[in-house]
Design a protein around this nucleic acid. Sequence first.
DNA 1: TTGCTCCTCACGTCACGTGAGGTGGC
DNA 2: TTGCTCCTCACGTCACGTGAGGTGGC
Lengths: 326, 326
Amino acid sequence: MVSFGWNEPNEGEEDMFRISDFSRLARVSVKTLRHYDRLGLLVPAYVDPASRYRWYTARQVSRLQRILSLRELGFSLEHVAGILEEDPRGRTVRRLLELKREDIGRQLETGRQRLAQLEARLRESEPVEPRLPDAVLQPLPPIRVASRRARVADLDRGAQELFEKVEADAMRTGIRATGPPLLLYHDRSFRESGADLEAMVPVTHEARSAGGSTLRTLPFVPAAACLVYSGGYEQWAEVARGLMAWLQTRRLVPVGPLREVFLQFQSDGGTLELPRQFLVEHPGELVTEMQIPVRASEARRVRAPRVQLARRSSRPSRRPIRRGVR
Amino acid sequence: MVSFGWNEPNEGEEDMFRISDFSRLARVSVKTLRHYDRLGLLVPAYVDPASRYRWYTARQVSRLQRILSLRELGFSLEHVAGILEEDPRGRTVRRLLELKREDIGRQLETGRQRLAQLEARLRESEPVEPRLPDAVLQPLPPIRVASRRARVADLDRGAQELFEKVEADAMRTGIRATGPPLLLYHDRSFRESGADLEAMVPVTHEARSAGGSTLRTLPFVPAAACLVYSGGYEQWAEVARGLMAWLQTRRLVPVGPLREVFLQFQSDGGTLELPRQFLVEHPGELVTEMQIPVRASEARRVRAPRVQLARRSSRPSRRPIRRGVR
DNA sequence: TTGCTCCTCACGTCACGTGAGGTGGC
DNA sequence: TTGCTCCTCACGTCACGTGAGGTGGC
């Protein structure tokens, strides 16, 4: 047994709160307090060596409240532990909070959108059956681009940062963009985090250097399904449905990385060869073209059995969901 | 082996997408698709019996998108499964969506508040040290009340519903409230879900029946720490700190259930005996009094050793947090 | 034939919650 | 002494993600 602290001055001498009272007054569950103790986030002011009872002081409330408010801002407890070791007035914490502010701003925006959509859906008694967008099949010419490729932690932010870097490089080296920016998805399947992205800007063949960006030529693609749509990713549902239905009826299958071309991504328009009518229909909106290399299917036609039944008898789901609302 | 479906008409005959392509085009990870298959939420149109490869059709995108949008609204996957079995235009779904709308509205509100607080904190170079609110020690007289007690799933909503019921009972039975409503926390420690709450309205002793509500008399409390504050639960941090510090310096310990008295909970004020000055200072705001029965501490003074060191040597935390921001 | 795609299975993550079984405190 | 409070330990939750080890498909 180690024994110390018993020679301390009187400042340590004070009444304390048992865990249940501390829990009630601070509005935090006992389980949470024990959890924070284990993580070393909030260690009780005193722990009885025999009974292991935890005792807390009033002064510990402020640390607890800092933990809770950081947690509510969306930081992980591990992250909170780090922040609490920093100077709360220092630059590091300030920067983190500023980043978090932008974060929450974005979250609010998507929340508002979702709410608006939900309300629209509730107002309409009958859903407006959206006409599915139509695609075209065409070859993609080789394109000379300045590009940056990386695995990014967050899809949207990562893409934006890549584009900013490429554009900064172009600025510095005096390269002019000759067309709208493109985004390539290199992963064979979709992933939200750790995606392998390549952001690029078309340039002329005269460009010799692009700083940190790479100059390369996108290969010729003999056939690609291309689909232009307006609006952000909230449109993806219909775009995907439309494109896939289109591919399916034509017996085409994807064979290469997906491209997104940002034809109009700012209110001033951009350099595009879009039909003028499209732009008039969607003034100031985001206009994107999706392009996916395809080839004819191998004519290996798979016929679909009534799979729901087949699956049930051959391989029952391991964790069946209990049905029924409420 | 069960075999069927091979006599189906041609409608089942169509090309399909392998899981990676379906994933890319629908912007959903392969892991998620397999997960939904396992749960029976989205079973592939065809599963090769030999290879167990999953094949999806374009038509399955719309079901997937419904799953995703319901999930994003905050429904659990189990709940989503239930909703998908209902008529999407039926009353059940409509009611669920309306509830969810209110839910999201509330979430947006707290998000906005958090953002505002964060921004305020970022604007101030120096924090305004809040003066801690002050409590008073006083006896609580017995009070005749009409009350409803229940375990509630959600704290805030549960309390509100209880109050609505009590007030409806009072209306129906013609009882007049003789004071501001009270909320009692019966749990020995705090809990967010499943809390044991009692909502009550003071009434006269003449009342003989209160419908579904119970008529009872709150017992006399010889000593309670009472603290009046304005604002909502976002004030709790300071209130708790103030109250606990106040208790601690006076060597008082809580001995009974916590009461909240809603002195002013609507913009029109209410029936109160608050100092007029307080009301003038906080016009139209929420004004709450916290009351907690106390008694003198047993003079068993626990002296706090330097616990951080003691704990480290005697019981190292099992899952230490790796420190350092970013 | 080779590498690529897909498979299953087991375990991890995150912030606790649940419950069993047991001991200290007044 | 009795019930109440608190303890630890192990496991569960939720919606997947990670990675090992292995097989089918072109």
